[in-house]
Design a protein around this nucleic acid. Sequence first.
DNA 1: AGTCATTTGTTCGTATGTATG
DNA 2: CCATACATACGAACAAATGAC
Lengths: 253, 253
Amino acid sequence: MTGIERQTGVALWRQIADEIRAAIGNGDHDDAGRLPTEAVLAARFDVNRHTVRQALAALAREGIVETVQGRGTAIVPRRRVTYPIGPRTRFSAGLGGQVTQAVTHLIGVSQEPASADLAALLHLQAGTPLLKLETLGEADGVPLSRAVHWFDARRFAGLPDAYRLEGSMTRALAACGVPDYVRLSTEISAAPATASDRTDLALQPGAVVLLTRSVNADSEGQPIQASHSRFAADRVSLSVANDRDKPVPGCDK
Amino acid sequence: MTGIERQTGVALWRQIADEIRAAIGNGDHDDAGRLPTEAVLAARFDVNRHTVRQALAALAREGIVETVQGRGTAIVPRRRVTYPIGPRTRFSAGLGGQVTQAVTHLIGVSQEPASADLAALLHLQAGTPLLKLETLGEADGVPLSRAVHWFDARRFAGLPDAYRLEGSMTRALAACGVPDYVRLSTEISAAPATASDRTDLALQPGAVVLLTRSVNADSEGQPIQASHSRFAADRVSLSVANDRDKPVPGCDK
DNA sequence: AGTCATTTGTTCGTATGTATG
DNA sequence: CCATACATACGAACAAATGAC
C-alpha cells in the first residue's frame, strides 16, 4: 500500500509532496538530514521518477528541501514556534525566548452589531455595537497568525488609538482601564488555508491553518473580548499546560 | 479575487469542492439550506459550468450535498463534535451528551525502545522498552480520532489485555493499578491528512487533521502515558476551558 | 591526476486527465 | 455530444555533477 491515489482531482506529484512534507514535519528523516534518492522514492510511491521530481521541485520552491545534482535532496532545517494557551495567554509574551522579536500589527478597524453567538459569549444583547479589530501577528518578520477581536464598542471606544500607540493588546487594554485579563476558554479546530489566509500569512496552496476561538475576561470575570485567530499550522503549534508550576518540554524537535 | 488558482497540482473542480465544503462547514449557506445555482457558482469562481458540476458531483459522492434536477443543490445537515481538553481529559467521557455512543478500538499493540523525546516526556532512560498501543476513537460509528499511546512496558505489561477486556483506557489503567490520572500537557498542531489518516478516519483527499501530543500522569504526578492523537478536523474541534466551574458554550452552530 | 558507481538533470515520445466553448 | 488546448504521468535514454577509491 503506497497511500497515493489516482483520479482524485489531486495530482500525484502534489500528493507525494504533501506526504513528504508531513514526513519531514514528523521528523522521519531527521537521522540522515536528507531524503532518499529519487529512484527510491519513485519505487516507494510506485510512480515514475519524473513525478517524484515534480514533487521535490514543489518542496524546493517552498524552501523545505534543497536538491543538488549528484548529491541528493537535503532537508532545510526549520523549527516551529510553540504558542502556549492558558489562563494568562498573551501573544508577544507567549513567544518570549523562542523568537527575538514578536509584534502585532493592526490591519483593520470597523464596527458591527453583535451576532447572537458573539453576544452570548460577551454577555451582551444581540445587536449591541461591537468594535472589531483585525490584527496580524509576526515573529522575526514571519507572519504567524491573523486574528479578529470583538469588544463592546461603548466600553472600548478608545482601544484602536491605544493599540496603534502601544502596539500590543495587553498595553492597549491597560490604557482602556483593564489592567489585567484572563483567558476564559479556547476552542481549537483546523482547516485548509483559504485564499486570504494564503495572502496574509504567506502560505503555499495546500497549507493548513489552526483556528482558535477564545474569550478573555477582566479581573471581575466579565467577558470583554472575543477573538477568532488563524495560525499558520506549519509554523506554529499550540501548547496547553495543565501543570502550573512545571512546564513540560515540547515534544517537537 | 476568487481564491481558485490554476497549476497548483490540484484540479479546479477539487479546489472548488474544497472551498464549498469549507463554506458549508463555516455555516455560510445555513440561511438558505442550499447552494447557489451552478451558473452563479461558475461566475463566482470564474470557471466553466462543467467544472462546477464536477465539484458538486464530488461533494454529492461525499454525502455533503444532494442535487436534484430542476430544484438545485441542497446541503445535507451535519454537526461537529467538541472534544474538551483539560486536566481530566478522557475520550469517552468528554463526548458525553454530544453523541449517543463513544467507543475506542485497539487496533495495534507493539513494543519499541524509547526515543530520546519520549524518554524525556515519561521521565525514563532513552531505550527503555515502551508498550505502544494504537487506538481508533469512534462516535456513533463514525471514526473521530486515531492515536498512539506509549507506556513503560515494565509497569504496564498487562495493559493490552486489560484494554481488550474493558474497552476503555481509563478502566484499563484502573485495572493496572492507576485509579486516577491527570493530563499534564497538550500540544496541538494541524496538518493535511496523510494517506493512512484517510483510510483509518474515512477522510477525503484534501482533508485536514488536528494533531495533539499529550502526557498523562498518575496521582503522584509521575508521567505514565505519552500520546499522539490525530482528529478528523471536519468532525471534531478541541475546547480548552480555563474556568473550572463555568464551561462556556461552544461558538459553533 | 583518473576511474567508477551513484545521483540528479534533460530531452525525446506517448497516453490520459482537466478545462473550455 | 464534439473539438481543442494544456497539465499530468509514464518510459527510455543520455548528460552532468558528486564523492570515494
